[in-house]
Design a protein around this nucleic acid. Structure first.
Length: 150
DNA sequence: GCCAACGTTGGC
DNA sequence: GCCAACGTTGGC
């Protein structure tokens, strides 16, 4: 799950109450559907920093809630406001994400240097999804070889 | 329901 | 700040 370290880095997440962030602002149907249909409480999350000097994995987290309505869609003052959405017909969802610990930063170039990770969705050219899937094999490889806590 | 134009994302 | 990729919009 990608987030911008400017405002919601792994450090921000760890410092939040219960080390948990409401993952608001997802405005893409495919990403929303991952939260709604695929995620389960306790699932592991790679905490990705995007739109920054060195995009990549910076921490581990886990899913801490079912998908629920993202309140920012109803807030005209929010950058995530969606005027086409209404409380009786909400369009966007969020999940709570609980940060577990920081990892050594593992940037895109390093990830790409591992053939075992070549198919990771987040590494594919043109990928713009802020939420993407990690296979069990990729997850295992990452944890085994690259993601020591720090 | 097709598809061109437009907007957004995010790595570089 | 550039631009490739791709999602969304809206005229037809």
């Amino acid at each position: 799950m990608k987030n911008e370290p400017e405002t919601e880095s792994i450090d921000h997440a760890l410092a939040a109450p219960h080390a948990t962030l409401a993952w608001s602002g997802v405005r893409n149907y495919q990403a929303r559907n991952f939260m709604r249909d695929q995620m389960q409480v306790g699932d592991g999350v790679l905490y990705w920093h995007s739109s920054c000097a060195e995009p990549g994995i910076y921490g581990l987290a886990s899913i801490a809630s079912e998908a629920r309505v993202d309140p920012t869609q109803f807030d005209p003052a929010s950058p995530y406001h969606d005027p086409r959405s209404s409380p009786d017909k909400p369009r966007w969802l969020l999940v709570d994400v609980k940060a577990l610990h920081k990892t050594r930063p593992v940037g895109i170039a390093e990830l790409r240097s591992h053939p075992a990770l070549a198919d990771m969705t987040v590494l594919q050219k043109g990928n713009r999804l802020s939420i993407s899937e990690v296979t069990p094999a990729q997850w295992h490889y990452l944890n085994e070889h690259l993601l020591q806590p720090c």
